[in-house]
Amino acid sequence: MTSEKITAETRTEFGKGAARRIRRQNKIPAVVYGHGADAIHVTLPGHETMMALKHHGQNALLELSIDGKTQLALTKQVQVDHIHRVIEHIDFVAVKAGEKVTVSIQVLTVGEAGPDSLVTLEHSELSVEAEATHVPESIEVSVEGVQAGTIITAAEVTLPKGVTLLTDPDAAVVNVAAAPTAAQVEAELESAEAEAGIVHEESQADADEAAAEAAEAE
């Protein structure tokens, strides 16, 4: 994992009003915790920071320049306003090169499973321990050619060198099941509609067809 270099400004104003003023300047309020030191409250350039998070994912490592000093900071929590599509606040944890950290890594499936199968991701993330400067952006699980009825557990997932699994090794990560038939899908839909009390009015065409079938039966 490479770190993005970003110049941060220390801030002394806090609260919702101060945060709104910062965001109006296309900047992002943030705080850096860790290593027994006082939390450092900073302001980050909006576009530059947003692109860094977009490129490096939920565990983006930033090299913050704060008052002339460099601090490695691992992204821990990003608060987003999904209506206005802007980052409202970021929490970082201060880290050092070579230091071990516990993070959650996104799981991605790659490849095409065997015929008539349905791939379900039971765990979208795995908890792992890794060096702060070598946290993988994601973990890929290959389902290429995997047959229906197969369950891939956390212990069977191949992790990058130096990464230790913390999630229960027996936890199901990927479930490759038999794909339902059209009849099964229709039956499940009818059952769900019946439970919800949904009643479909019979169309005139259906009524005419039923009457014709009844007449033929007589």
Rank of each mutant, 00 (worst) to 15 (best):
E129M: 14
E193T: 03
V80K: 15
H123S: 07
V146L: 07
E48H: 09
V101I: 06
P180C: 06
K96H: 08
A196C: 02
E209S: 04
S124L: 09
G98A: 07
A179L: 12
H89D: 09
E186A: 15
A178W: 00
A207Q: 00
V143Y: 03
A155Q: 12
V176I: 15
E122H: 07
S124P: 02
D116A: 12
G162C: 04
V119N: 07
M50D: 08
S124D: 10
L74A: 09
D81H: 06
L62M: 10
D208Q: 10
V93N: 05
N59W: 09
L62C: 03
S124V: 08
A30I: 01
E13D: 11
H89Q: 07
S65Q: 09
K27Y: 02
T70I: 12
D38A: 10
I66V: 15
V135M: 06
M51P: 00
G17A: 07
L61H: 08
A212E: 14
A177Y: 04
E140D: 14
E144T: 12
S117P: 09
V157H: 02
E195K: 15
K96Q: 14
A214F: 07
L121V: 15
G149H: 01
A182F: 08
I105T: 10
A177T: 10
K27W: 04
A8T: 06
E201F: 04
E125P: 00
T43W: 01
E186R: 13
R11Y: 00
I40V: 15
S127F: 03
V31T: 03
Q71W: 05
A187E: 13
A39Q: 03
V86Y: 00
V31I: 14
E9R: 04
Q79C: 04
H56M: 11
T12S: 13
Q184A: 15
A113G: 13
S104W: 06
Q184C: 07
Q106H: 12
P115E: 05
A192L: 13
H55K: 15
S203W: 01
Q25L: 10
V157W: 02
E202V: 13
K16C: 00
I87K: 05
V141W: 05
P45H: 10
T120G: 00
T109H: 10
L108T: 09
V157R: 01
A19T: 00
P29W: 01
A19C: 06
S117L: 11
H200P: 00
A113H: 04
A194T: 04
E112V: 14
I198F: 07
E131F: 11
H56R: 13
P160G: 03
S203Q: 01
E195W: 04
A207S: 02
I40L: 09
S138E: 11
E190H: 09
G57A: 13
R23M: 05
E4F: 15
E144Q: 14
E218T: 11
V32K: 00
Q25N: 10
A171F: 04
D67Q: 12
L118C: 08
T120C: 04
Q77E: 15
I87W: 11
E202S: 08
R23C: 02
V32I: 14
T49D: 02
